[in-house]
Design a protein around this nucleic acid. Structure first.
Lengths: 230, 230
DNA sequence: CTATGTGAAAGAATTCACAGCA
DNA sequence: TGCTGTGAATTCTTTCACATAG
């Protein structure tokens, strides 16, 4: 599950708060899921809690970190030092959670040489050298969309096999390379959908039953609700 | 589906490239899904393509925008003008996709008054006034984790019903309020898991069959693979 | 003949509910 | 008694495959 990292975050918070042990119910709350799901997820790890007691917080942290491969700090290359790239370069949430931004790169020579958070921006031509020097395994793309595919190709060419893509476009990569995409505008658009739905519903007070009125788009509200998950 | 925004992005790209019509296959490629899924999704919208031809790009854009509630530009309040908040405030991907950052707020008085991208940072005390003045429907939280719940409470109190949360913590909100979370470190951790898995597999050359060796964490590789989606 | 729209099949994910261990 | 771990039941999603409209 892609929920393990969320459990890990919750566990760290619990550990900081002094808990040595936690029930599936307690951890589930802290992670924002229900307890049955959490227990099922953890059981897939073969992780053992203690019946009648719960899970040992420190032990579970170790287990999950080992499964996620976070026992070593991973070096990351960030390509694209615009607005967003700048913020990512300065984001301390990475360092505290197992990652080290080991290189900043940009295609714009006017940005090369700039120093951000103790790191100098290098030209993207140096990618190959930097990846080797720093044993970089993960690339982050924060360029404009039109440049993203070319950057992805270069990352793959120099041996990077995991990419986090902030550019609003789909990347095509060979098998064996993993890509995750974060599109900030899409997140807002999903919220917009929910807003739109809520507005439509309150505008039609208490029309239960089958005759539920059509939305602006010409759709029954129930269909539309079904049409967008979460 | 939360895939409609992705289709919308792909459609805009196609429109910009001069396409007036597109097949389910073509749009599916541009959006990074398969065509059966795309057709099923669009059929839920009641959207009509033309058999033998495909979908009218402009028409489909209108339909999806209307379903997502993007026919009007939505005003957004951004709380927390640190590193990430700064980047979000300057991100032009919002404006071009139906959103207007209408207010920047921060609890830190030393930041109040600062101007970012033509907007002045205001103190979070003014939230109530600003939300009313600007008809804000969506709040974005880019504060440190410890402050996020309090900000969420305030947003809810002044009538915001959708929240995009960048702080690494779960928010509890009343029914009827939608929250989406983006946690950048979690995205990297998921990639780390994939890296870890790939490394383990190549380290054990061609050990097929049931005896597939254990990972560092003491798990069979197949179990672990099953344990994290996508 | 082409490509949509959609029942039906297959596959995942979630939830239920409880046996069994501490 | 309290809480985990897990089969069984349920629900949701994805894929298949084809009748049907243009």
């Amino acid at each position: 599950m892609s929920r393990l990292p969320e459990y890990l975050r919750a566990l760290h918070a619990l550990a900081d708060a002094g808990h040595e042990t936690v029930s599936s119910e307690g951890l589930a709350n802290a992670a924002g899921v229900n307890s049955a799901k959490l227990r099922k997820d953890l059981s897939h790890l073969g992780s053992y809690g203690t019946r009648g007691v719960g899970y040992d917080v420190a032990l579970l942290i170790d287990q999950i970190e080992s499964v996620l491969g976070l026992t070593q700090c991973r070096a990351v290359a960030l390509v694209g030092v615009g607005n967003l790239g700048h913020a990512l370069a300065g984001y301390d949430g990475f360092a505290s959670r197992g990652f080290r931004i080991a290189a900043l790169l940009d295609a714009d020579r006017s940005r090369v040489g700039e120093q951000i958070n103790g790191l100098v921006v290098r030209h993207v031509d140096e990618l190959s050298r930097v990846v080797a020097e720093e044993s970089i395994s993960i690339g982050v793309i924060a360029t404009p969309a039109p440049a993203a595919q070319a950057v992805a190709d270069e990352l793959v060419a120099v041996g990077v096999t995991s990419i986090l893509n902030f550019a609003p476009c789909v990347l095509s990569v060979p098998d064996g390379v993993d890509v995750r995409k974060v599109d900030l505008a899409i997140e807002l658009q999903i919220l917009s959908f929910h807003e739109h739905r809520k507005a439509s519903l309150t505008a039609l007070p208490a029309t239960g039953g089958p005759g539920l009125a059509a939305l602006p788009g010409g759709l029954a509200a129930t269909d539309t609700q079904e049409a967008i998950g979460t």
